[in-house]
Simulated scan of single mutants.
Amino acid sequence: MSLARVQHISVSLDGFATGEGQSLDAPFGHAGERLHEWMFDTRWGRGMLRQDGGSEGVDDAFLRLFTPGVGAEIMGAGKFGHPGWHEDPDWKGAWGPNPPFRTPVFVLTHHPRPSIEMEGGTTFHFIDASPADALARAREAAGGLDVRIGGGPSMIRDFLTAGLIDHMHIVVVPILLGRGVRLWDGLEGLEKDYVIEAVSTPSGVTHLTFSRTGR
């Protein structure tokens, strides 16, 4: 069976994956882009911004695992847009006309709407479903490839609580946010279900990989 995997979700030293006060102009709230500066210093990250240059070390190597082997993504409503996006019929996400996913993307929301087909192979489907039902639907669409569990932190926590995550890559960034949405709340003892490895890089971040035991 295909894997359900989380890829390069950044968290602060105190466990926050987004800051407080998210809005259209501040998608990560008071955290700004501090959780992701390491990413945009890499060649892969610069490429996402259509810029040249960037490092080609371990950080870049981890980021290049984003696309290979992935046939669908599931994301939460908070990743797809700012609070209240469902009231804007013209909102199509924050990635422009050609989003980077290039697969079917299932957006978990209590406000379903018709699917949106974008350039480059991305189609957003808006569903109100449990983690297990959403994963079953995404696996069917993925055609045997893996399903990326794209975030945000509340949605990832729900999938972890349900025991549905096979592999997870978390990046610990050396900042303290103090407030926002934490990833690890309510997940005491999670480490017992995974083999965990850590790699620290010159950028100052630490890559943690969680591989479910028995897979």
Rank of each mutant, 00 (worst) to 15 (best):
E37V: 01
I74D: 10
A134R: 07
E33R: 06
G45E: 04
F28C: 04
K192G: 08
M1T: 05
Q22M: 12
G47Q: 14
V172W: 05
S130R: 04
A136R: 15
G121Q: 05
K79T: 14
P83W: 05
P114S: 13
G143C: 08
A138H: 13
W95S: 09
E191L: 04
L176A: 05
E37C: 06
L13S: 08
T161P: 00
V147T: 02
V205M: 03
S12A: 11
I116Q: 15
G121M: 04
S154C: 11
V171A: 01
V181R: 02
G189H: 03
A61K: 02
H8N: 15
S130Q: 14
N98I: 01
L208Q: 11
T109P: 06
M39I: 15
L164A: 10
A129N: 09
P202R: 11
P99I: 03
D88N: 15
M155V: 13
V107Y: 04
R5S: 08
T109Y: 12
V58L: 13
L164K: 02
G32S: 06
F106D: 03
G19S: 08
W85C: 03
P99M: 02
D166F: 00
L35G: 02
R139M: 12
G186R: 13
E20F: 07
G81N: 13
D60M: 04
S55N: 03
V171D: 09
P97F: 04
T213I: 15
L187R: 00
A142R: 09
G150W: 06
V105K: 00
D90I: 07
S200T: 15
E117H: 02
R148I: 04
D128C: 12
V6I: 12
